[in-house]
């Protein structure tokens, strides 16, 4: 069971690097969506005995992260008629290298932290830390609003990975509330992206410089 899980986490970690290296927005969105689907499958692999609960969480996650949110982003992208994030603040190669370094750092960090016996052989903690780091890197390093939203999605994916450590010990109500909040957050962000596009005729956040000291 842990092997299957580790395989999925490894896949998600690989997707981090793909995301860091991709300049085309459609592929970035696709990577974030695919990572979401991979994450959605994990509860099923982890705790088959949870049954209905795991199934519910899994299908809600796959639906949201794999279909609804990427669809929203694609619509915004088409409306803005942009395909590429051409001039990132942190270049593609440096961010790839940073991402790889972050992955190693995540493994080192996870070794320092005390884990429960059932989590000792799993990649959950390093995977979560590396994904959170990737998300932050995209948030800081990219200049198009849509790529930043993708960064936020990947950050969220990392947190979700970490949340899997607590699967079964947090009540469904809390999990549901968290999922709902995050979904609404992305919806609201989508609306604001749309308005920015209309107000500035661009989704380049470097143009948002009217407010400064």
């Amino acid at each position: 069971m842990t092997d299957h899980l580790n395989l999925l986490i490894g896949l998600a970690m690989g997707l981090n690097l793909v995301a860091l290296g991709s300049s085309r927005l459609p592929s970035l969105i696709r990577v974030a969506a695919f990572q979401g689907v991979v994450l959605g499958l994990m509860p099923l692999v982890m705790e088959p005995e949870l049954g209905v609960l795991a199934g519910l969480i899994a299908s809600a996650t796959v639906l949201m992260k794999g279909l609804v949110i990427p669809g929203l982003l694609r619509r915004a992208m088409r409306a803005a008629r942009i395909e590429r994030d051409l001039a990132p603040l942190i270049g593609f190669l440096p961010s790839l290298l940073l991402g790889a370094a972050g992955m190693m750092g995540a493994v080192a960090l996870a070794r320092q932290l005390p884990l429960l016996p059932e989590h000792r052989n799993s990649l959950l903690v390093p995977g979560a830390a590396a994904t959170v780091f990737t998300g932050l890197l995209l948030l800081v390093g990219r200049t198009k609003a849509i790529s930043q939203v993708c960064g936020y999605l990947i950050l969220e994916n990392g947190i979700y990975l970490f949340g899997l450590l607590l699967l079964g010990s947090t009540p469904l109500l809390v999990e549901g509330g968290i999922l709902l909040d995050l979904t609404v957050a992305v919806f609201v962000t989508g609306i604001i992206v749309d308005r920015i596009q209309r107000a500035f005729d661009s989704l380049d956040t470097r143009k948002l410089t009217a407010l400064h000291e």
Partner: peptide
């Protein structure tokens, strides 16, 4: 447009911060 710019910054910084606090909550749970 200035209001949208402010909203975007509020959303981006605020959401990132609040996401980190979710991670922190999970850590406390663990």
């Amino acid at each position: 447009p200035r209001a949208y710019e402010a909203t975007w910054k509020y959303l981006l910084v605020g959401s990132t911060g609040i996401a980190l606090s979710l991670l922190g909550s999970f850590c406390l749970g663990y």
